Amino acid sequence: KNAAQIVDEALNQGITLFVADNRLQYETSRDNIPEELLNEWKYYRQDLIDFLQQLD
């Protein structure tokens, strides 16, 4: 998997990933985040941060 796929997957589930103060953050109206997504975000944290910062 790559960062773009993970960001896309999150968006499809109503979750927006973004970077604030060099930390990976998310916004969602969901009550909870599936644990497998959280684990994936932790595992790919630096890739996601790098990818999202390139988009800014």
Score class of each variant (00 low, 15 high):
K1H: 04
N2H: 10
N2A: 09
N2D: 09
N2Y: 08
A3K: 01
A3V: 10
A4P: 05
A4Y: 07
A4N: 06
Q5H: 05
Q5C: 08
Q5S: 07
Q5V: 07
Q5W: 06
Q5A: 08
I6C: 03
I6R: 02
D8E: 15
D8Y: 15
E9L: 05
A10P: 00
A10G: 03
L11F: 12
L11S: 09
L11N: 09
N12S: 15
N12C: 12
G14W: 05
G14F: 05
G14V: 02
I15Q: 00
I15G: 00
T16H: 13
T16V: 14
L17V: 03
L17E: 02
F18K: 08
F18V: 06
V19H: 04
V19K: 01
V19Y: 14
V19C: 06
A20M: 11
D21Q: 07
D21L: 05
D21I: 04
N22G: 15
N22I: 07
N22H: 07
N22L: 07
N22R: 06
R23P: 01
R23D: 15
L24K: 00
L24E: 01
L24A: 00
L24C: 04
L24Q: 00
L24D: 00
Q25C: 15
Y26V: 05
E27C: 15
T28R: 03
T28Q: 03
S29G: 08
R30L: 13
R30M: 11
R30Y: 06
R30N: 10
D31N: 12
D31A: 11
N32Y: 14
N32C: 11
I33V: 13
P34Y: 03
P34H: 04
P34R: 05
P34I: 03
P34N: 06
E35M: 11
E35K: 09
E35L: 13
E36R: 08
E36K: 09
E36T: 10
E36M: 07
L37N: 03
L37G: 01
L38Y: 07
N39P: 02
N39L: 13
N39H: 08
E40R: 05
W41P: 00
W41A: 01
W41L: 10
K42A: 15
K42M: 13
K42F: 14
Y43A: 12
Y43W: 11
Y44C: 03
Y44Q: 04
R45E: 15
R45W: 15
R45M: 15
R45N: 14
R45H: 13
Q46F: 07
Q46S: 07
D47M: 14
D47K: 10
L48G: 00
L48P: 00
L48D: 00
L48A: 00
I49T: 04
D50E: 13
F51P: 00
L52Y: 02
L52W: 02
Q53T: 15
Q53L: 14
Q53E: 11
Q54F: 10
Q54M: 11
Q54N: 07
L55N: 12
L55V: 11
D56H: 13
D56N: 13
